[in-house]
Amino acid sequence: MTNTLRSLRPAASRLRSPQDLAAGLLLAAIALCGLWLARKWEAGSLATMQAGFFPRLVCYLLLASGLATMLRGLTADAPSALGWAWRPSVAITVAVVAFAALLDKLGLVLAILALIGIGGLAGRPLRPGPFTALWATLASACVAIFSWGLGLPLQIWP
């Protein structure tokens, strides 16, 4: 939302849009991957559609919209801001994957520690005291709600 609101700033100069170009490239790449993966599936005909018909139809349309977006990126003016926030994006992703990797082996309490410990690096990390309090609160709330309350087969301790 905020992005769009920001993107409506009047363009100061006629800038071509690397954002649209990148979006178009991504869409076209997804479409080509889809077509390649679907290459062996039977397509059938319009009257007797097989498993490959709909994927191909969608991929061709996607390819077309990808090319159209690329074309717009080369010709029309649009915001050029394409910054990438490495710290939050990497920290959040790694934290969630770490949670998934640890949950079955070390249990919920330690998996939450890893999740909020690594995830916290995405913003401004908490000091040890508040961090421990947050960990204790979240871990006990989760155990109470999901394990006791809902009876999910969650491993709590290692």
Binding site: V96, A100, L103, I116, G120, R124, L134, L138, C142
Partner: peptide
Amino acid sequence: YAYLFPAILVFCCIGTYSLRNDVFDVV
């Protein structure tokens, strides 16, 4: 927000896990 977003993360992860009890969904 420093307290809030870790809490949101935890609830997102456990919520997704609880669907099929499979960490694959979390990944």
